[in-house]
Simulated assay, not measured.
Amino acid sequence: MTHSRSLSHHRVTLSDGTQFDVAPGQTLLQAALSAGLEWPNGCRVGLCGSCRCKITSGQVKALTDFSDVISQADLTQGHVLACRCQLESAIDVSSDELYGRLAPDDADIDATITHIDWVTPLVQLIEVELDHPHPHGYAGGQYTRLEVPGVVPPRCFSFANACRGDGRLRFLVRVFPGGRLGEWLSQEDRCGQRLRVGRPLGHFLFRDHHRPALFFAGGTGLAPILAMLEELASLPAAQHPQVRVVFAARDQQHLFHRRFLEPIVNRWAIGTSIDFVSVLSREPRPSSWKGLRGHFFEHLALLTAGFENADTYLCGPPGLVDAMKFYLVKRGFDRTRISADRFLPSTS
């Protein structure tokens, strides 16, 4: 099957013989979807890894750094993110590996909102119950797309609890102007309302419980970290790693991490260290706050003490995540052991 071609376009050939063309300025994913192909995808901004594919010949230009999503070994073998690359020549792509990820049971699942709670003036906790659990479950650190059909288009949110197989999910939703789901939730009591939950997406996953883990979270970026920690807490005590969670907020009224982290700490193995630290960037003076002020990178020596060889996880707004990654690498942290999940605001 061949799709139409015009001058200055680059041709893509899949190993099953399918061909299509990519126009100047188009990403590989945009061209594939425009050609009517069923190409796996999720966030479409380079965060989830769902659209990854293996280039077997030809050249592409990466629009962003793939290393947060694709391992160095896979990068060396030609794996790229289709949503974040443009073609510099004709390319060949392995279709066997690509279509193998198109599972027939990955359909959205209907669900009901069972609980809503304001945890800060700008963040809501919503609890959802699926009509039936997802057949494959999900891993801590992954996210999904929530949709209120006809009202709120699909928006991406990380799971804020570990998968228990009972179809009960938690999400943290930041409310801000233009944030469709947050605004809709704020208008009236939405308990009992129906919504649609997509398949699990993303590769922001816990790596190895044999190594210490250092987490940095800003705002609702705490959600995937909570899911990871709940998963770890359910493991045998001997598998609990040394953990530190550093949470950033504007001021004391925006601190909400203790409510969720303290129950996890109480389940941790005796004798294995787990602690959490807060850093406030805009706490007024004077105030009752006795903790750290400013930004993460201003206190790196203190925050990373004892975790110099840890796997590090960064989650929050892109500016915060990118700055932290820069300063951690500058401080000597191994870039390949830093995982990042950037939360991009979804607006109308």
Rank of each mutant, 00 (worst) to 15 (best):
A35W: 11
E38Q: 02
E38L: 10
E38D: 04
W39Y: 02
P40E: 08
N41A: 00
N41W: 03
G42A: 09
C43K: 01
C43H: 00
R44L: 07
R44M: 04
V45S: 08
G46A: 06
G46W: 05
G46L: 09
G46N: 09
L47E: 15
L47R: 14
C48N: 04
C48F: 05
S50W: 04
C51R: 11
C51E: 03
C51V: 03
C51N: 04
C53P: 02
C53L: 11
C53Q: 08
K54S: 08
T56F: 05
T56M: 01
S57W: 12
S57R: 12
G58E: 11
Q59M: 12
Q59Y: 03
V60A: 07
V60T: 14
V60H: 10
V60F: 05
K61G: 00
K61F: 13
K61R: 14
A62P: 08
L63P: 09
L63C: 04
L63G: 14
T64C: 10
T64I: 15
D65F: 01
S67A: 06
V69L: 04
V69Q: 09
I70C: 02
I70W: 08
S71L: 04
Q72L: 06
Q72P: 02
Q72W: 12
A73D: 14
D74Q: 14
D74C: 14
D74I: 07
L75T: 06
Q77F: 09
Q77Y: 08
Q77D: 15
G78H: 00
G78V: 13
G78N: 14
G78Q: 07
G78F: 10
H79I: 13
H79C: 10
H79G: 03
V80N: 00
